[in-house]
């Protein structure tokens, strides 16, 4: 009886947590989607990043800004399992088991997570696409990797996603090589979002694109983030990009976080001297 009481109480409490975390607005969520604790990574004697801690809430977009070499990509690599940090914890709120330290997951578990609940958008679409595989195959790969075996339905989903990223569905059988840079980037996004992930890692997703192409991509990303309730960690040099997309910012310098806050606050009223330089564009970022 006493055992039942104890577990019953536990279950009851859990259900309360679940009920509130299903509310759409991230401010109402009880638990962060991602909790980063003291993450550090060195390259030999050089510091990649150090002492990084923050929480990312469901539906929130966190911008990571800082000059070249400040450790943005290193941090993103550590969070997304592409780099192995020397220390720290990266707790992700998994669908089935709640918060789990992804650094201590087995490789198959992490891979599964990376292709279901996570998205990773590389600056260079070549790093995130299979250039020898058709657009449809690129988008369908995640579905097939997680067990989809119905060609017609895979193709339908691919076609639907091409449409959502504004690629003419008539080009579903073309290879990415035949696409412009902006289209390749949108294809990379479709290929990642087809699995309905909750968290996206983006490293300079608009870098290397013409300004007008950038603007269109930003619009698209903003719409997708809103519609899907996607959370994101967005690395960029470009303060205009974070102004448009990020709810909150962390500012990095020499591998460390020097300032953090709501985007408008940080950009309009920077506290740290480095951020002030960054915002006034005195620093070449």
């Amino acid at each position: 009886m006493s055992l039942l009481d104890a577990s019953g109480g536990g279950i009851c409490h859990k259900e309360e947590v679940h009920a509130s975390s299903s509310l759409p607005k991230h401010l109402d969520s009880d638990s962060p989607l991602l909790s980063v604790r003291s993450v550090a990574k060195r390259y030999g004697a050089r510091i990649g990043c150090k002492d990084i801690s923050f929480d990312l809430w469901p539906g929130e977009v966190l911008g990571v800004v800082g000059e070249s070499g400040s450790g943005k990509s290193t941090l993103l690599g550590c969070l997304s399992g592409q780099l192995r940090p020397d220390g720290g914890e990266v707790l992700f709120d998994t669908r089935d088991r709640g918060p789990v330290d992804t650094l201590r997951m087995s490789e198959p578990q992490r891979r599964h997570l990376a292709r279901t609940d996570w998205a990773f958008v590389h600056q260079n679409p070549r790093d995130g696409l299979r250039m020898g595989v058709s657009a449809g195959g690129n988008v369908g790969e995640r579905l097939m990797a997680t067990g989809a075996r119905h060609y017609g339905r895979i193709r339908e989903a691919a076609s639907d996603w091409l449409d959502r990223v504004e690629i003419d569905t008539g080009r579903i059988d073309d290879r990415p090589r035949q696409f412009s840079g902006g289209m390749q980037q949108r294809l990379q996004i479709a290929r990642n979002l087809v699995s309905g992930p909750r968290l996206a890692f983006m490293d300079e997703p608009t870098g290397g694109l013409d300004v007008s192409v950038q603007a269109r991509l930003l619009d698209l990303l903003r719409g997708l983030v809103r519609d899907m309730g996607l959370s994101a960690v967005l690395v960029t040099h470009d303060l205009a990009v974070v102004r448009l997309l990020a709810d909150r910012l962390i500012v990095m310098k020499d591998g460390r976080v020097v300032e953090t806050g709501l985007t408008d606050q940080v950009l309009d009223d920077p506290q740290h001297g480095y951020t002030q330089l960054l915002v006034s564009s005195v620093l070449q970022v």
């Binding site: 292709r115 058709s134 449809g136 195959g137 369908g140 790969e141 097939m144 990797a145 060609y151 895979i154």
Partner: peptide, 9 residues
Amino acid sequence: GLMQVRLYE
């Protein structure tokens, strides 16, 4: 998954 992509293609 990649094997299946080959057949998809």
